[in-house]
Amino acid sequence: MEIHNSPDSAEAAAHVPDAHEDHAHPTWSTYWKVALILTAITVGEVWAYYIPSFVASRAFVPALLIMSAFKFVIVVMFYMHLKYDHKLFRALFTGPLLIAGTTLIALLFLFGHLTVFQH
């Protein structure tokens, strides 16, 4: 399998148009692995959905939230190449995402859906 984008491949480096392109790029093997992980987690999530004892347990919701959050993060980091890109983009995305997440939690609390915090 050819590695097309690898920054450490001499062949690729020779073709980089100017020195501007200094940040590392994800490679084909990264893309492939991310897709594999995404598929595996999705299978795991759906599997969990069909285990009644797990669904009934307290771990079900946190486990699903963690799994989907992980999928969310790896798509953003590798496919949206935020891991490799200018830090400005990270700020433009995470700032609003934090405000959005806080708003969601606050709303769920205000509408009585987060019983953990109430007695």
Partner: peptide
């Protein structure tokens, strides 16, 4: 486009919040 995506976070969180509420 990144600013737009940030904005879309708020759009979808409003929809998701309503669904969950």
């Amino acid at each position: 486009i990144w600013a737009f995506i940030g904005s879309e976070c708020m759009l979808f969180i409003s929809l998701i919040s309503t669904y969950l509420i």
